[in-house]
Design a protein around this nucleic acid. Structure first.
Lengths: 156, 156
DNA sequence: TATGAAAGACACGATTC
DNA sequence: GAATCGTGTCTTTCATA
């Protein structure tokens, strides 16, 4: 993990790329106050040290008819490896399950789900509730996404 | 929002682009079983109807030293517009707050936070708890991200 | 009408000095 | 950092079924 090797110029580059990866290299260089060569070298470096993880296309859930975003909180009695493997093989296999976190606090697992509707969610819910040693399952559905971004804060 | 206008070929294209937007156009056309012209036309259309929302660069939280991912659940007494505006202006302004949802169920707001450490989180927490009419704030921190993807399920 | 092939201008990635 | 070159992409136009 080490220290941050990101300076203010890198930050400008990353800020722009997080927002829009299709920005022309010349425009990006200008934003960063660099020549295109220098800009390119920095991007290469940021890829090499793993800061830049991927370049992806984001889709619109609304346009795809994915009207339901929800968070599911699960409590279990058994926390062993075997249970986790089974959990992943069943629940994690749903493409609607986009995040799974093992968490501190009162909860044990927190999932983010993006699905077409409650019927689609219900299938996942049933899969979860049929797992052994699940003591509690509760959900909070998003009525409105007030903020939602893939842009991470750039420290320092 | 209306019906899906996505066929199986579109799905192949979107699946590939969700995974890696830097895939060469020729390779993408091959995956979809299309010529580059046909592939290009479909992408254009998917952009126009809003299915393709953006092309972004994803960064690695670990590489950036962002070691803390957490979910904060907030309950309030006041649900008016004025409160929401103040909430957004203060809490929503933190770049560490990457998601805000108004939710159903027992909770009122659910936030996702990506921060450097507990000290950075604490600043946000203090801002939240100082808001009027906040009756409850609880957090669950991710000890392990078992699954985390920006890829949405492609229905139908 | 929809799809494939061809061809051009252009910009990007990468190297060299 | 500047200049450069090969490559691939974007886009249009024409041909085809």
């Amino acid at each position: 993990m080490t220290r941050n090797i990101i300076d203010s110029v890198d930050r400008k580059i990353l800020t722009a790329l997080q927002r829009d990866a299709s920005i022309p290299a010349t425009a990006l260089a200008e934003v960063a106050g660099l020549t295109s060569t220098g800009c390119w070298r920095r991007i290469k470096r940021l890829e090499e040290i793993g800061v830049i993880a991927a370049r992806v296309t984001l889709l619109s859930p609304q346009a795809l008819g994915l009207g339901l975003t929800g968070y599911v909180m699960i409590r279990t009695r058994d926390h062993g490896d075997a249970w986790l493997r089974r959990f992943l093989d069943t629940v994690g296999a749903f493409p609607e399950v986009v995040e799974i976190h093992r968490t501190t606090g009162d909860l044990d697992y927190l999932l983010k789900i993006v699905a077409r509707d409650l019927a689609a969610y219900n299938e996942i819910y049933r899969t979860i509730s049929q797992l052994p040693d699940v003591t509690d399952v509760s959900a909070a559905f998003s009525m409105e996404a007030i903020k939602s971004t893939t842009e991470l804060p750039l420290p320092r």
